[in-house]
Structures are given as C-alpha cells and as structure tokens.
C-alpha cells in the first residue's frame, strides 16, 4: 500500500528544487503570456499622438471676437477605428490670426459645457461650474480653466491638434495625453 501523503515522503532538497523549478517556470509562463497581453491591452491607449489634426473649418467662418461651437473632422486617422463621428469644440477668434480652441468637457468631471453668448460665459450643467470667455474658472468646482487644443491655420483653414491643460494665468501647463 502506498504511504499516506506527507511532507516527509519527499526529502528537503527535492522539495526546494521543486519550489525553485515551479517558481521559475511559473514566472516564465507569466512573462511570456503576460507581457504581450498587458501591452496589447494598455499600450494602444497610451500612444502619444495617434490623432494628428482635426479639420475645424475655414477661418472666415469664425467672426472676430466671438465664440462659436464647431464640429471638427479627424483628418489623418489611424486605419481603425474610423471614428466617423465629429468632434465638437468651441472656437474663439481673438483677432490678429489668434485663436483659442476649447475642449467641451468641463474640467471638473467632464460634463459638456455650454457657451452662453449673452452672458459671455461657459456653464457646466452638473455642479454649477462657470467659466469666462477665456475659459477661466469664475465659479463652482472646476479645478482649472477649460482645456484647449493646439491649433494651426493653413491656407485659410483652421485645424485643431493635441489637447492641453492651462494654468490659472492661461499659460500652457501640460499636454493632456502626453
């Protein structure tokens, strides 16, 4: 009859060897399977500048001194996904060929802000966030001014690029997805 299962039926040296072998093989399996899967899962999301430029529209569409909502179209996209849906943003023509392009998500928790032209303010509908026409926080809980897009004008057409955060003095603070 076979002996009852017991730790003592295997000598200590052998047990240590089994432990070491199992650890090594286990770690190797975890690495060979885990590293590609983790990269597969996370890396595309962390890619820096996948979306190059959004075509916002002819500069002439944006009257000087005014803020208007624009629908922009991704210009050079990746093969997939073709996010055919447009991207909304607010365009402020500051004159002298200068623009400010605001992200529509409130910097608090991301509710869509509305531009109210008569009041000259952006309002967030969720927790009472109010921004002035330059995106500064006037009231409510938003922690920083509205995020902006970098932009360029080529042949009279306005393009929006990467999104960045600004500090309270409206100076560049950080790329949003750097």
């Amino acid at each position: 009859m076979a002996p009852d299962p017991s730790v003592d039926t295997v000598p200590p040296g052998r047990r240590r060897f089994v432990a070491a072998a199992m650890t090594a093989i286990g770690a190797a399996i975890a690495a060979i399977v885990g590293v590609p899967l983790a990269g597969f899962f996370a890396l595309p999301a962390l890619r820096r500048s996948e979306r190059r430029w959004l075509e916002v529209g002819p500069v002439a569409d944006f009257a000087e001194g005014r803020i208007s909502k624009a629908l922009a179209k991704p210009l050079v996209g990746p093969v997939w996904p073709r996010e055919t849906g447009r991207v909304a943003l607010y365009v402020q023509n500051q004159g002298d060929g200068k623009f400010a392009l605001y992200h529509i998500h409130c910097t608090h928790v991301g509710c869509p802000v509305r531009w109210n032209a008569p009041a000259g303010r952006f309002f967030s509908p969720c927790h009472g966030g109010v921004f002035d026409k330059d995106g500064r926080v006037l009231a409510g809980p938003p922690p920083r001014p509205l995020d902006r897009y970098e932009y360029k004008v080529e042949k009279g057409v306005l393009y929006a690029g990467r999104i960045f955060k600004v500090n309270d003095r409206l100076e560049f603070a950080a790329w949003h997805h750097a």
Binding site: A88, G110, P112
Partner: peptide, 9 residues
C-alpha cells in the same frame, strides 16, 4: 452624441 453640448449627464 459626443458633440451635444446641451446634455446634462
């Protein structure tokens, strides 16, 4: 509609 700025989440 990701472009809707009237929506209240």
């Amino acid at each position: 509609d990701p472009t809707d700025t009237q929506y209240v989440p």
